[in-house]
Each structure stands twice: as C-alpha cells, then as structure tokens.
Design a protein around this nucleic acid. Sequence first.
DNA 1: AAAAAGCACAACCGCCCCCAG
DNA 2: GCTGGGGGCGGTTGTGCTTTT
Length: 329
Amino acid sequence: MEVKGRVSTTTTTIQSDDEMDLRRGPWTVDEDLALINYIANNGEGRWNSLARSAGLKRTGKSCRLRWLNYLRPDVRRGNITLEEQLLILELHGRWGNRWSKIAQYLPGRTDNEIKNYWRTRVQKHAKQLKCDVNSKQFKDAMRYLWMPRLVERIQAAAATAATAGSPTASASATTTITTTNNNNNTTYNYDNNLNSFEAHSGNMMLSPAIMNNNFGGSRSYTPENSSTGASSDSFGTQVSPVSELTQDYYNNVTAGNNNNNPNPDYYQQAHDQLSFLDCITSPSGLFSQQLDFQSMEPNTPWIPTNGDTSNGFWNVENMFLFQQLTDNM
DNA sequence: AAAAAGCACAACCGCCCCCAG
DNA sequence: GCTGGGGGCGGTTGTGCTTTT
C-alpha cells in the first residue's frame, strides 16, 4: 500500500528527490521490521540519519514516533487502569496539557495515548455536562465527584483482592499510589475526606523491580540499558539471525488483543514495570500480589458491562451531585 | 441488514527549544 | 551572536472498527 499524504497530497510541497520518495500513512510490516532491526543493532537517536541508514523512506520524525508510540518494547497498551485514570486527572490538574510530563509518571504509557484518553474520554464527559473541560465547574466535578469515585473503585477492587488473601482489609481514609520518575519515587496520598492529593517525593518504597527497571524519564531503549537483556533471546541481546528475532518480536507486538506485549520476555518486563500497582497500599499495608484491576472491573458496581472503565461515572446520581455542586457555586 | 453515528487510536503537522559548528 | 539540524511537544485529523438507529 503506497500512501503518499494522509490528508491531501495537493498541500504537500515536494522539495527534493529524497522527499519525493518519502512515504506517509500507516506503517507496513516490512517497515516496522526494518526499524526494529536497525535499532536492535545500532540503537536509537539521530532519527533522520537512522531513517536513511535503515533504508526507510520515512522522515526521522515519523520513525521516532513509530518507535516511541508503538514498537518500543516497553510500550504498554490496552485500557487505562483506574489508578492511571486517577493519576492522569490529578496530574493534568497540576500541569495541564503537558502530556509528556504526565506520561513520565505512567510507566509504559505514551504521551500520545494519554492525550487520546483525555480527548476521547475526559472531554466527552465535559461535553455531556455541557461545560468546558478547562472550566472551574468541570475541574470541581473531577475533584469532588469523579476522582473520589475512582478512589472508591480502586479501594473496592483492592478490598476484593485483599479479602481473598486477608480478611482484615477495610475501607481506608487514604489511597496511596506510588509511581516513579527517573528513579525518584513519588507517592500520592489521596485523602478521601479532603478529596485531594498530597505528593511525597523521594526514594521510599522503591521496590527492587523499580530499581532494576529504569522506566522513568525518557524510557528510551538501548541494548545496553534494556532490562530485556536479562533474557537470552530478548531484543536487547545480540543474537542471530536478527531478522528472526525481530520477526518474532514484531509478531508478538502486533498479535496482542488487549495487548500488553505478549512476548513472554517483554510481557514479563511490562509486568515488572507495572510495579507501582504493587505499591498501592491498604490500611493493613502493602498488598503482596499484583492487583489486576482491569480483570476485576467487571465485578465492581461502578463498571458498565461493556468494560469501558471511564463511562460508568456519569450516572443519574452523579449528574444530580454535579447539579448540586454547580448550583452552590 | 444497512446506514449513520460514535469512538479509539495511529500518524502527521507545525511550532518551539536546544545545541553544535 | 547566528544558523541549521535534531528532536520534543501539543494539536489535529484520517481511518477503521464498533455501536446504535
């Protein structure tokens, strides 16, 4: 499929022979493999020359985006979890549309994905409420209605999980989410009574999994720093033939349904990198097992049966509460 | 069953900043 | 100080899939 110009080729100014050959639009399997192959052997960076050297008729920017948003081994796809939703709401309230900054606190998520989430889900809710997404009205609705509901759902799911292993779990006054950025932990204590977050920076609660996986910051992949190198046939290790490796890697990247990268190596890595979920605490302390909230969601009353984790909030009760809230402003 | 509407997401664009020469 | 290339970022849009009518 030769696609030249995603919108309209009439607006594209062709300036050189190189640019004349540039491809646009969806990436093909061959292109993906070429890019994966090249980065596996040479690392990333210098994207324009990388594109030429790899024989890709793409701009450097296009290669960079494709790698960072799709092909990179630690990219995590699938539904945004409740904890992630909570963090996005909180961090957006703090920083606005600083998607890349927000993404740094959500391991494996790309700025593009968070941006898409915000536009498709959050802005939809604002639209439903007939108010601007940046209005005080909507921000208050998020802080006093949406976020507490998310916390309740997280705690309900945590309690469900804890009940299975510990009969002492109960509702908590605070919900703690710990995530990392450049190996610095930030612990978010959400006060259920005050409807507010309090952040604590530092290296407390830094689990070995986090220490061993530098997934904060740029999360860039190089064979040297990739923890996938722990596996003998992983992407980060020089094995031959590379084409088989990358084909296998690519198949796994593209085969996922919901998809955390299903390649066992990368899946394990992604699993390790989600360790901030491990750090969600209950009053009785740290849960020992990973909390898979997505799999729990269908069992919680907040979740619609279609599995959409974001649409279950604006029910009649909450619409009423929102009305009360806005009436008192 | 077909058409329309809605949704999710990949990809591109333009602007900006940084930095080496 | 200036310039050009590289790269990061936020905004926008096209497309394919799903849901609704």
